[in-house]
Amino acid sequence: MRPLVNVARLHAIRPLMYLGLPWAITAFSLAVNLVIFGAGPVSNTHRYTGAASITFIFFLFMGVSSVGRTLPFGMALGVSRRSYYLGTALLAVTLAALDGLALTILQAIERGSGGWGIALHFFRVPYILDGPWYLTWLTSFVGLALLFGYGMWLGLVHRRWGQPGSLIFLAAQVTVAVAFVLLTTWAHAWPEAGHFLTTLPAAGLTGLLAVLTAALFTGGYATIRRVTI
């Protein structure tokens, strides 16, 4: 357990990156939205913005950089690949849980203040982040962890196989998506697919994302075991 904690501490040695920056960026994005929507004519229409996605995208970035130059330094300090990965994953899951909770609290404030006084939907996203507080928390948690895990895997593929490897990795994902579309078309299964997607409750979607997250973390683990520095 001790090497895992050391790795998490090694990442957090610069608190700005993992604790400060996500919220500085989210706060800036919120401020920009408040200024833009607040400057317009007052009306009762609800204003939707996807800008809270910036927090999620930043988790992707954190995932990539968590296996950047910190990895060879950690390994130089006698940390095994396994411990490095598990320690980093531990940090990712903890951050996702805490930041997901913060998003949930901000959403509650947004709801309570009538959308920051101007009917702004910043932390409320229709369908996905729209339910009771515990579902908002759960979905944010899973979404943040998913993007961190994906970023980490991508970063590891890049370290192991370089730019050609990263490109093949991305191309493989597109291929899988295209194959899925083609199969659905050939099987004349679009009505069923449409029915599945439109009737899937948000909690069900979260469950699917959780399965995907577990798959991404497993892929990253399999990759780091092959990394050499």
């Binding site: 040695i13 610069r14 950047g68 130059r69 910190t70 060879p72 330094f73 130089a76 006698g78 520095i229």
Partner: peptide, 12 residues
């Protein structure tokens, strides 16, 4: 302990 010439360090 392994000290190598081309050690990479994070931004610290």
């Amino acid at each position: 302990a392994f000290i190598r010439e081309d050690q990479e360090y994070p931004d610290i």
